[in-house]
Simulated assay, not measured.
Amino acid sequence: MEEPPARVELPAAFEYVDVDVLAQLVADMMDRLISHNDQIPLSPESLTRFHSRTAPGISVLDYLRRIVRFTKLDRTCLMITLHYIDQICSRIPIFTLSSLTCHRFLITSIAVSSKALCDVFCTNSLYAKVGGIPVTELNMLEREFLRMIEWRLTCTREILQEYYVNLVRTHSKGQFHIAGPGSSSSSDSDMDWDANRSRSVSPARPGMNGREASTILIDTATLSPESPRPPTLEQNMAFEAFRRSSQGI
């Protein structure tokens, strides 16, 4: 019988965690969101500039590691991506983080947050090259991202720390724990509570076969939901292209 891997103790504050470990934690959370959200049927009005025709052939973790390697990604910029996901998915409930949107969302979020939070950051040309998309496309994604987030690009350090704690406690392999008194032996009930909280969901919408889009940790007091809009001509045409492609027409 194979022994479970030894648990790894992490610093109490996310600022002192190895950036590769943070990438593993974020990727693990996103993989679970994607697994859930990929089961939601795609509709014309849910298509955004972040949708690709097919899922990229690189995992979320490898994509994050690529970004970390070539852009010297700051830990805060990586962590605040989770806050952006919650904020956008709550303001625009039809948007979901899926295998078709995750990679474009990540590179755009990191490009935007680096400019907002860091004294030194890369150019869009470099972010686009690292992300595997044309720079003109990244420019359009950046404008759309800022519209969706309503230019609210910052949050408190306490919010990011709460995300970090929840990422560790709900890690799918239970591989990590946070250093500190009593941190190495959380009760099952505590773990269940945090897992449920970390999978907060937006209200169910028609046409989703009863499934709900999963987000992470929503602070609803800060949100101003956007009214639903009918699909545009561009969305209808893109949706038809998706349909024909999936059916091999």
Rank of each mutant, 00 (worst) to 15 (best):
F121C: 11
C122D: 12
C122W: 14
C122T: 02
C122E: 12
T123M: 02
N124Y: 09
S125W: 00
L126R: 10
L126H: 13
L126S: 13
L126E: 08
L126A: 07
Y127G: 04
A128C: 09
A128I: 02
K129I: 01
V130I: 12
V130C: 05
V130K: 02
G131T: 03
G131M: 01
G131D: 10
G132I: 01
G132A: 01
I133L: 06
I133N: 00
I133G: 00
I133M: 03
P134G: 00
P134D: 00
T136Y: 10
T136Q: 05
E137I: 01
E137S: 02
E137W: 02
L138I: 02
N139F: 00
N139Q: 05
N139K: 07
M140Q: 08
M140G: 03
M140C: 06
L141S: 03
L141A: 03
E142F: 01
R143G: 02
R143W: 00
R143H: 05
E144P: 04
E144Y: 06
E144M: 05
F145Y: 15
F145C: 07
F145S: 07
F145T: 00
L146W: 13
R147E: 06
R147V: 08
M148R: 04
M148W: 10
M148V: 05
I149G: 06
I149Y: 07
I149L: 10
E150Y: 11
E150I: 00
E150K: 12
E150T: 04
W151K: 07
R152L: 08
L153I: 11
L153F: 08
T154P: 07
C155P: 11
C155N: 09
C155W: 11
C155K: 09
T156K: 11
E158H: 06
E158M: 08
L160R: 09
Q161E: 15
Q161H: 14
E162P: 04
E162A: 06
Y163M: 06
Y163R: 03
Y163C: 09
Y164R: 07
Y164A: 11
V165E: 14
V165W: 08
V165G: 04
N166E: 11
L167N: 04
L167D: 11
L167I: 03
V168I: 09
V168F: 13
R169V: 09
R169E: 15
R169A: 14
T170V: 11
T170D: 08
H171A: 11
K173G: 09
Q175N: 13
Q175L: 15
